[in-house]
Design a binder for these strands. Structure first.
Length: 893
DNA sequence: GCGGACTGCTTACCT
DNA sequence: ACAGGTAAGCAGTCCGCG
């Protein structure tokens, strides 16, 4: 592949061929596209050039599926309505002859017709003939209440026929537009065009070239796996467009500054709105109010400030602005900005037809009929995204914290209640929030937009849904898609559970369903020259190599029962591959052997690497959850034995590896789940172990990290490692946990700094002396009560895990502090961070806001300092009490 | 009536 | 609405103690 080709590939995606080339290649005159940005007329013309499939919905008025296409040249969204006559349906085991007897069914206004269909039944490994019940609209199949077609069948049939046959209904809870996507094998996030009113997938030659290259890399894989790898690669190779978007934030005046106005009432004025576009447009719309001064500060010159003498006009201007952008970004717009705006518009008597945007309110969402609304709060709140895509860099799910952590931009402080601010102060405050919101999607080359797009492609979901829902939905949907593609019946959760049963192993932790991973007891002390080896995505590898899936575990074949999972009575199918194994396995292969290495390959152009990096982190997020979902009862393909078998094989893999390593004369000083820590190991020993693992376990074992030295106490999941370059990695030690007082954390950081300089065992003595000094110093500062004018640095910061009233069994300290704050009018909810200090008087805690220096219980802080440092001092052979000058006798007094 | 041993709850972390 | 395993601190309970 030449540089030039790569350039082609990434700068201007130029699709060249279409899948179905029914039309002649003679140049066709294209109708000029509407260039004015307005959402009113966005029904796609009969011919539409290459556009991105960004979303899908069901249109009730047209009674058909509707696809939202983003055309990157005009930067507009167009609608395409289904032309194939596809209809909603569910499946049942009753034949049409029996179904006809159910009059409530045949007389249901939404009922259309019956159709016998052949499907593969994955639980019993056989072909079956069942009945498709086709409806006129999705809500006739099922909905939030009973009385729909899917309920009528099991409710009515037994009355008619007795109970001799079990009545089953399948696939009745799948969203209609998802069903449409699966049945037509559409690819959300990919490029399509409209020709003669038909939706046609567009092929892209540079991607095809890459796919040929990928073929070569994976040529030794089984044919079946290669097909999956190719299909994924086809989705993931094609680059992302520029998304034209608008960030929006509103401010509402409220008589009580500590209380967030309720959008269900929308009782107060919308006083300010900031709108920042990806095109560089920055606007602030302000409501003129009595007694508010302009203020003397200046706003940046590129900001257009507009005053409105009526709130109605202000709202109309907002709606107008929103309608000009295909993508709209908010931070919590689902639960605040949009519900507030729409309710407020209603309160002010703005009629719907005057409102140029149509907001569709769901139970917990607000979607735009003509555009795509992405609520970044939901996206960043997603735990998998937080941990695996952003490496836990932010902890608080607030705009302020996420912005600070990822962008280094902080929210502006409010000196006065919002309603009393000058216009410019208010404008600046509001503007900053929109700025952070937009930048959260532009930093690192539009990383977040690309990530959402990549996940859209993997999961076959609309962008709105993928950015709001969790990883288990993403995984479920690509599995569902594959079921439909293979004409395999999607089983009901209760049938999977009934035929595969529950778990058999005993968890270490009370209340857990099955036994999980192994943690090896660490060898305490300081160890020089430590190499850490691990299995490249252990659990996905196991799922792949051992053919795990709900249909293959405890399969119905007698011949397979000898293919046992270690430590369990479970067996795995030897005759047929499970869908999960193929899909998850191929994603793993692509990440490990293609996207991860290429994201680091400096010989590739920056944009290419950046895109590959997006893909590899999207895959990481999905792969990391791909085992856990099978053990989660809320997952639609929940199958506890699959999760249990995966963990059991993992335990087997690591214990066998440790045995082998010891056989090779290697000293193992620690291990956790998929990793082993080897001391003073030779390259030959490593090579031997890698080779053994490949041959005996079928899994790639690799050196992940090399430490100059590592420090272990006797505690598991607690260590400190110093890399060859002097960087320090701290795992699990109290000294780096986020809730501990800064006063203690600072001392710990000083110690880290010292440890990073140690190059050899001989240098340790000097460092030990300095560490002693750090501890002594902190201790005496505590004793002398030197920590500043206020006890800020002594505050613990603990998250309120649930609403205060839900703590019934015990009252932890942070809840005591929270209750105290609540008494004083603070509004506290689950997820809020409580800061408190330890004081002498009952109940020994006080919220930081109410505490003063004189009441601090120094003794408590000394013990906390001790327990924090003990985790390292143990290993260095030092004793806290000795350091602070207590004699052995004094310690007993 | 009090204190130590114990269990359970809660949070933060590791893989 | 991915999983289980570990550490730590505190709350609450039980039991023995003339």
């Amino acid at each position: 592949m030449t540089e030039r080709l790569l350039d082609d590939f990434f700068t201007t995606p130029k699709p060249v061929k279409t899948k179905q080339t029914e039309s002649s290649s003679s140049p066709k005159k294209k109708e000029p596209l509407e260039t004015r940005h307005a959402a009113f007329q966005s029904v796609a013309p009969k011919e539409l050039p290459t556009s991105y499939f960004v979303s899908a919905t069901y249109d009730g008025r047209k009674a058909s599926a509707c696809i939202k296409l983003y055309e990157p040249e005009s930067q507009k969204i167009y609608f395409w309505y289904d032309t194939t006559g596809h209809k909603p349906y569910c499946l049942t085991n009753l034949p049409p002859s029996e179904l006809k007897k159910i009059s409530r069914l045949t007389s249901h206004p939404g009922f259309d017709h019956f159709e016998p269909v052949e499907k593969y039944d994955p639980l019993f490994d056989r072909q079956i003939t069942i009945t498709k019940i086709v409806a006129k609209d999705p809500s006739s199949i099922g909905g939030p209440f009973r009385g729909h077609i899917r309920d009528i069948i099991p409710d009515e049939y037994p009355k008619i026929a007795g109970l001799e046959q079990e009545v089953k209904v399948w696939e009745a809870a799948i969203k209609y537009y998802q069903s449409y996507i699966y049945d037509r094998d559409l690819a959300p996030g990919m490029i399509y065009k409209i020709e003669n009113n038909k939706l046609i997938r567009v092929k892209h030659e540079p991607s095809e070239k890459m796919i040929r290259k990928i073929h070569k890399i994976f040529q030794d894989e089984p044919k079946e796996s290669q097909q999956y790898i190719e299909r994924w690669a086809r989705l993931l190779e094609y680059p992302a467009p520029k998304f034209r978007r608008l960030a929006l934030d509103i401010e509402v005046s409220s008589p009580i500054p500590t209380r967030v106005p309720d959008p269900a009432e929308a009782a107060y004025q919308v006083v300010c709105v900031s709108l920042i576009g990806s095109d560089g447009k920055k606007r602030v719309l302000l409501l003129k109010r009595e007694g508010i001064e302009e203020g003397d500060e200046k706003l940046p010159s590129d900001v257009s400030v507009e005053y409105f003498d009526s709130e109605k006009k202000l709202l109309l201007a907002i709606f107008e602005a929103i309608s000009e952008y295909p993508f709209v970004l908010t931070f919590n717009g689902d639960d605040f900005d949009f519900p507030y705006l729409t309710k407020r518009a209603q309160n002010l008597g703005l009629s719907i037809d005057k409102n140029p945007i149509e907001v569709r309110r769901g139970r917990r969402t607000c979607l735009l009929k003509n555009g795509v609304h992405i609520d970044l709060y939901k996206f960043f709140f997603n735990r998998s995204i937080q941990i695996y895509a952003f490496g836990r860099r932010y902890t608080d799910m607030t705009l302020g914290d996420v912005g600070k952590a990822l962008l280094g931009i902080t929210k502006l402080e409010l000196a006065k209640p919002l309603s009393e601010l000058t216009y410019t102060k208010l404008a600046r405050y509001c503007l900053r929030d929109s700025e952070i919101t937009l930048k959260l999607t532009t930093f690192d080359d539009d990383l977040v937009m690309k990530l959402i797009l990549a996940l859209t492609r993997i999961s076959s979901m609309p962008m709105e849904d993928v950015s709001r829902q969790g990883v288990s939905r993403w995984i479920r949907n690509f599995l569902h898609h594959e079921h439909r593609r293979q004409n395999t019946l999607i089983p009901n959760a209760e049938d999977i559970l009934a035929s595969k049963g529950a778990t058999v192993t005993k968890a270490v932790i009370k209340g857990k369903k099955y036994k999980g991973a192994i943690v090896v007891d660490p060898v305490p002390g300081v160890h020089f020259n430590v190499k850490v080896m691990d299995f490249a995505s252990l659990y996905p590898s196991i799922i792949k190599v051992h053919n795990l899936g709900y249909q293959s575990i405890r399969c119905p074949h007698k011949e397979c029962v000898d293919n046992k999972v270690p430590e369990t009575p479970h067996w795995i199918c030897t005759k047929r591959k499970a869908l999960e194994s193929l899909l998850i396995g191929s994603l793993r292969d692509l990440r490990v052997k293609w996207y991860k290495p290429r994201s680091k390959d400096k010989s590739l152009p920056r944009e290419v690497r950046s895109w590959y990096n997006v893909i590899q982190s999207a895959l990481k997020v999905i792969l990391n959850a791909s085992y856990g979902v099978f053990g989660a009862a809320t997952f639609d393909l929940y199958c506890p034995p699959v999760a249990e078998a995966t963990a059991a094989i993992g335990r087997h893999a690591i214990t066998e590896t440790i045995k082998k390593a010891q056989g090779l004369g290697i000293e193992i000083i620690y291990g956790d789940t998929d990793s082993i820590f080897l001391k003073g190991v030779s390259q030959d020993q490593i090579d031997a172990l890698v080779k053994w693992s490949e041959k005996e376990l079928g899994m790639r074992l690799e050196v992940d990290k090399v430490y100059r030295y590592a420090v272990f106490s006797s505690r598991k999941k607690n260590y400190l490692g110093v890399f060859l370059d002097g960087n320090v990695e701290v795992k699990g030690l109290t000294g780096k946990k986020r809730h501990i007082p800064l006063f203690i954390k600072k001392a710990f950081e000083q110690m880290e700094k010292r440890l990073s300089q140690v190059k050899s065992p001989a240098e340790f003595e000097e460092t030990k002396r300095e560490i002693k000094k750090i501890v002594r110093d902190r201790h005496s500062r505590l004793k002398r009560r030197e920590w500043g004018d206020r006890p800020d640095k002594l505050a613990f910061h603990v998250v309120l895990g649930k609403p205060i009233s839900h703590y019934k069994k015990t009252t932890p300290q942070h809840v005591k502090a929270a209750k105290e704050l609540k008494k004083r009018g603070y509004e506290l909810k689950a997820g809020d961070l409580i800061s408190f200090v330890k004081v002498m008087k009952e109940p020994h805690v006080k919220p930081l806001q109410l505490a003063s220096n004189s009441e601090i219980d120094v003794g408590k802080y000394v013990s906390y300092l001790q327990s924090t440092f003990d985790q390292v001092l143990d290993a260095l052979g030092l004793d806290f009490n000795e350091i602070i000058g207590l004699t052995k006798l004094e310690r007993f007094m």
